[in-house]
Amino acid sequence: MTVGPTAQPASGATGDSTSVASGVGLATRAYGFFRYNMKITIGLFLVLIVVAFGYLGPFFVDLEKAEVGSVLPPGQAPSAENWLGTDAQGRDMLAWLIDATPDSLRVGVMAGALGVMIGASVGFIAGYYGGWIDTFLRTITDIAMAIPGLLVLIVLASLRQEGMTLELMAFLIALFSWMGAARVIRAQVLSMRERQYVEIARMSGEKGIYIVFFELMPNLMPFLLAAFVGSLIGAILAAVGLEFLGLGATNISTLGNILYWQNFYNAVIRGMWWWWGSPIVIFIILFAGLFIASIGLDEWANPRLKERS
């Protein structure tokens, strides 16, 4: 009897202290996570630089100057007036780059997200059901991996007479950037399917759908994140390739389109280094960031990859 009243406030107190601690704990845990996974932190930081450039830039730089003929004379080297110079058509490079960055990121995120959804579904179904379904889906994945996607995309894009839109390009690219995700998720589901907690859930009569969403999905999250960044990289690469060939959404400013125009106007031969150099710097920061983050995510998902030293 005496235990009851004393136990009541005690449990209440612990409840309070845990809820307070969980706020602090979350921050500590996040700090610990980023400290332990330096590669994710560094990668994320580099990507955020590019994101901030594209999304905060408009607050500091007048995007009107990205219009053709807005800064004359054209083809100026960087100066106090135009920090990154101007192109051969009188666009301010800095304004143009800021204008172009968000749409380049958007294509990648849309295509990467769609790609990972397709890939995860294919990998999931293949791994979970096995048998002939697995053989069938794996064959399709192997075939898709052997096809140079860029070339088929080129055929597709060249046949469209009414030009490309950003969304259509993202959709088409997604059709060629799901295979990596499918392979990773399939392998994981195959190994998880046999684990005991799944077995227990199955034996206690849980439905397949329940097992999928409540037992498997949470464990797959790190792999899904890593796969998303992987297909994001592939998607931005494909978009840049298409745009460099002049097959992108040409009426919109993207970083790849800037590269197309510098090639069109022979900026390299004419020594206009600021024209081709500045988008390349952004690409290097972006790709390096994404790539380092994806290595970090892979190690987080699969700690055995981490160096033992």
Binding site: V268, G271, W273, W276, G277, I280, I284, F287, A288, F291
Partner: peptide, 21 residues
């Protein structure tokens, strides 16, 4: 890590400018 991440042709542009132009 940087060279593995960046597409081939971007290096091409850089090399073309420095060594060629």
């Amino acid at each position: 890590m940087v060279t593995a991440a960046v597409p081939f042709f971007l290096f091409g542009l850089v090399l073309q400018f420095f060594l060629g132009v």
